[in-house]
Design a protein around this nucleic acid. Structure first.
Lengths: 241, 241
DNA sequence: CGTCTTGTGTCTTATACAAGACCATGCAAA
DNA sequence: TTTGCATGGTCTTGTATAAGACACAAGACG
């Protein structure tokens, strides 16, 4: 096997398969060809292909089921919540948030937006202000900032049947953006008057401030999200390994 | 190959190797036998052994270096900081903390200790109060709680040459405890008078409260740590994948 | 100071069988 | 006839083996 590319073969295979998913050549939910067939197509052994598939599965780009086949992963609310939503109640159990969108505007990017999302100065962004509600109580206020270039004609889940749908599902199916990773920076901040009004707490109550930058499968920064979490009845959970 | 054990062979091999490390049969820094030799010893193929080794490396129990060999991982301050210390400055760079121990006592476990560390009521614990200092400024106050049964005759890094040594290094080399995982719960809390005195902030300043339970390679809860981080100049960083 | 040799982990291939899922067939019961 | 279900065939991924080429590190040797 010729290897003008310096990377190991299994990494090249992984990149090829990832490209097929990112480009939309293989759509969400679609079954991949069976391993022997795909390996023959790519001109590699089954073992090499399997190593590439294992890595793609680890990154949640595909799902494999013994006896059935390998499928391009689907983005669902359950998965988005399980993977990216780290809020737990005091018993340590996951909570199911409702969402209330309060404002959507399109505006020029701020300096912070330009830096975090690697935009060119003067680019436009969409801003979504919303609150998240656990068991009837508003517990998070947040602002989501999206590069307008990546989300043309931004459509949001506003219809009743979509209210329970996580926004990352919309990124995927409306805009073709596959969210795979996020960096978060956490700090503590006092509640502003607006925070206090929404969250029903005193002004100055310590809130957990979460600054998230989200990346898609192609490695682009696609979302900046600043959240304020009322931690009177909830915690942000992290597992360190 | 007989398999009365239901688990796949590579998992059984992984468990055997882990046991050899946890029990001390293979000590920290020691080179493992070469792969073909070890595979023959265990009566498995090289491929099966390599799969087990890959998992142990992922959990930081061994280190592999092409051309040199495979070694039982050593616990160093650098590794403990890199793996478990998530504080960054505002530029996003890691900080190098100094440590000031203010108080060490042995006392009966509280209810919270019993629950978090899975102790029997009435068990004793060591408590270590300390502060952590970044670039000359105290930024964290924390209390570490350890089951006395696991840390008999607790020895702490008090000598001058040990001041830069992370406490997990001592757990490993003084008490044979290999820290591999931690669960953290984060919230925001106002600074108490004592917090404010140490951190040089106003009473009521929002602090990031970190409640950590640490686990060793055998799966035991071995440490409860409650930290308060002053986030005026630092952040707690998380990567979500 | 290069070069060779030896020992190590890494990559790739090939083959075989195990285990899970699905489906068509066909028999038995209603 | 229709329904229900057991059975076996066949497709899938998962596990385990073996063998060889390759890349890297360290020490020996000229």
């Amino acid at each position: 096997m010729r290897r003008p590319d310096a990377r190991p073969l299994y990494m090249q295979v992984e990149a090829i398969l990832k490209e097929r998913i990112v480009s939309g050549a293989w759509v969400s939910g679609q079954a991949l060809p069976a391993e022997p067939e795909l390996a023959a197509d790519l001109g590699v052994s089954a073992g090499t292909l399997r190593r590439a598939l294992a890595e793609l599965e680890r990154r949640h780009l595909i799902e494999r089921r013994q006896g059935r086949g390998t499928y391009v992963a689907q983005q669902t609310s359950e998965r988005a919540l399980g993977q990216f939503f780290r809020v737990r109640n005091l018993a340590g159990n996951p909570v199911e948030p409702e969402t209330l969108i309060t404002r959507v505007v399109t505006a020029p990017a701020s300096e912070e937006d330009v830096e975090c999302l690697h935009l060119s100065p003067g680019a436009e962004v969409h801003r979504i202000d919303r609150s998240r509600i656990f068991e009837g109580e508003p517990r998070i206020v947040e602002r989501i900032t999206l590069p307008a270039a990546l989300f043309p004609g931004l459509s949001l889940p506003l219809a009743p049947e979509q209210l329970g749908t996580e926004i990352y599902v919309h990124y995927r199916y409306r805009h073709g953006i596959i969210v795979v990773r996020a960096d978060e920076k956490l700090s503590a901040t006092p509640a502003s008057e607006e925070d206090a009004a929404v969250l029903g707490c005193a002004v100055g109550t310590p809130l957990l401030l979460i600054e998230r930058v989200t990346f898609d499968a192609a490695g682009r920064a696609v979302e900046l999200r600043v959240s304020r979490l009322d931690t009177r009845a909830h915690r942000y959970a992290v597992e360190i390994v």
